[in-house]
């Protein structure tokens, strides 16, 4: 995305907000919702709008887990590491995702298909271990199920290619 495009999108979001500092986090959430991440230019645009020093915006963005500085993958994989998931082998599941995608937590695959991250707890403890795949919590995801889920994505991609 070009700098100009990023600025345009950001300004579009800013239109529906008043210039109150308390709006900073909702604005950043909305911008990220649109762009998938928070590029430098977007943060500068938000800082100017609210009359804040850019470092303030950067401080907030780097403080909260939800905000990302880099573009995400097409599919998001969030491995829950809540207590119940951990005790039921969530860390083993995370290892399996890392191994299969060849990336670490917080990274995106080179083909931009997947990004992998951990999440503190999605509150679905009874289905542990949980992986949230594209916003959908999946229960009882062990290494075998990781392979199955990836296979399903691959099939889907091949199906699209054929079409």
């Amino acid at each position: 995305m070009t700098e100009e495009k990023i600025k345009q999108h950001t300004r579009q979001v800013l239109k529906s907000f008043s210039k109150k500092k308390g709006n900073l986090i909702p604005i950043l959430q909305r911008v990220q919702g649109r762009l998938g991440y928070l590029p430098r230019e977007a943060m500068l645009e938000v800082a100017e709008f609210l009359g804040l020093p850019p470092i303030h915006v950067y401080g907030v963005v780097t403080f909260y887990n939800q905000f990302r500085l880099n573009p995400p993958g097409k599919h998001s994989v969030r491995v829950c590491l809540g207590t119940a998931c951990h005790m039921k082998g969530g860390y083993i599941t995370l290892d399996a995702w890392k191994r299969r995608l060849s990336i670490g937590a917080g990274e995106t695959t080179t083909d931009r298909e997947f990004d992998l991250d951990t999440v503190a707890c999605v509150g679905c403890c009874v289905m542990a271990p949980v992986t949230v795949l594209d916003e959908k919590p999946m229960g009882k995801v062990d290494p075998t199920k990781v392979d199955g889920l990836l296979l399903a994505f691959e099939r889907e991609r091949e199906g699209k290619k054929k079409q």
Binding site: G22, I25, L52, V60, Y64, Q66, F67, A120
Partner: peptide
Amino acid sequence: GSGAFVCGEETALIASLEG
């Protein structure tokens, strides 16, 4: 919230509401 456990602490929660 934006994903920070510490925001369950009331003064931190207020800070985040204040931007």
